[in-house]
């Protein structure tokens, strides 16, 4: 506890009112918060209006890890390749089991708080989720409402149909791998 008094703590309030207390170094991973803290808003509780508590928990997890990585890599002199690999593996693990709605909220939160690394992780995850999916599958996955008129939909489908033809060459290549 004595340590926590030494380290400056920051309080964050999620959109549903829950208050999180984190170390300043953790909060500063988010560039938006860093800018705020440098402009001296440290005493007040910082409201983060568009992020719900479960999402904020996840975000804080990420920030804590970033702080840990940066402090540990400065002590042990690992070659860059290793940490890169580890970071990748860790990122995959971190994103594992994140469902599509959580993912969207995470993306919005990391964009709002300006956490480049988390945004990249989320975007990569989402790109891999979209890949090879039909429009309806994407809609179902991310709860997007189809607001096309039937005519519009027909038109755009005709335009893009060629890309969705099953082609044996591609199939063969992907299955042989």
């Amino acid at each position: 506890m004595s340590e926590s008094t030494e380290k400056k703590m920051v309080r964050l309030r999620s959109s549903d009112g829950e208050v999180f207390e984190v170390e300043e170094s953790v909060a500063k991973v988010a560039k938006t918060l860093q800018d705020m803290l440098e402009e001296d808003c440290a005493d007040a509780v910082i409201p983060i209006t568009c992020v719900r508590a479960p999402i904020l928990t996840k975000v804080i997890d990420y920030c804590k890890d970033q702080v840990m990585i940066s402090s540990s890599s400065s002590t042990t002199n690992n070659p860059n390749e290793r940490t890169e690999q580890e970071r990748k593996a860790w990122g995959q693990k971190f994103m594992e089991g994140v469902d599509s709605s959580t993912l969207c909220e995470l993306l919005v939160a990391s964009n709002f708080l300006n956490i480049e690394g988390l945004l990249n992780l989320g975007v990569d995850k989402m790109v891999s989720m979209i890949q090879g999916k039909y429009p309806q599958e994407i809609r179902d996955m991310f709860n997007v409402v189809n607001d096309f008129t039937p005519e519009e939909e027909e038109e755009i489908r005709n335009q893009n149909a060629w890309a969705f033809e099953r082609d044996p060459y591609y199939k063969k290549r992907s299955s042989s791998k």
Binding site: I130, P135, N146, D147, F148, N160, A163
Partner: peptide, 8 residues
């Protein structure tokens, strides 16, 4: 191309 068909 696929994403373009999701919504407006």
């Amino acid at each position: 191309l696929s994403a373009a068909q999701v919504c407006r």
